[in-house]
Amino acid sequence: MSRKYVLPCAGYDRPGGKIGREAAEILADEDLEVVVGSVAALFAERPGEVKDFRSSQVICIDGCSVKCASKMAQARGNKDVLAVDVTESIAAIEDSKERGQAVVESVRRLYQNAVSKALPDFPSKDIDDSEFFIEKIDKFILKVQKGLYYSDNDFWARIEGEDVRIGASDLLQQMASDIFFVELAEIGKKVEFGDDVGGFESTKTAIEIITPISGTILERNELLENSPELVNESPYGPGWFYLVKPDDIDELELLKDASEYITYAVEKAKHELGKKV
């Protein structure tokens, strides 16, 4: 998850609170994906604050042992907060000017560790643009990854050994817009080609996940429960839905390959945009 909700201790009259705020300032200045949260706004469940909180990796900066920021984040339903203790982070730092930066480094280390642990199931191979067909339609850039199979419902299937991973195409996630909820079927469920197996909701619509292959669900992407926006951010990567053991791998021949699908997808996108491009 690239978006981070940094919740500093708001104890304005305490040294830890001041340093935590300095660290939040540095993080926000350096990283556009950082949103600085407010304990009081989170407490009051202000809609914008809650949206940021739920759609981001939450990182608390606690200024003292009471750990108000972490407690508030957990009270609001996030049990997976990353928490940095200012007191521990600055224990060996004598120069007061370097303390904010020391907390920033602690936050970065913690975040990197969490990210590397969170994505162990997905191939870490870098994806570059040469692996895509890319079309620009009006202001939209449409990407279709080569080597995958695509259904007319805009889901992709990728062969991985004897199994098949499935997800939503870039076109589908763009049409859906901001996805805030994904519901996935249970592991072990047997599915038939064209079955709906869960679904997702966005700010614009609700969409059923239509499986492009028959088989048995081996894995489902648990990260999507807390991070549904991964489907928007990386539909061919960490935003996948299921890993399926196919009944018949040849069923994929019923689907479009990437070169066929890009033509289909461009036409569909033009139609969605409601104009000839």
Partner: peptide, 12 residues
């Protein structure tokens, strides 16, 4: 005296 709002909200 200062009253720390987060501490206050956290139930101190």
């Amino acid at each position: 005296v200062t009253i720390c709002l987060p501490l206050f909200l956290a139930g101190d």
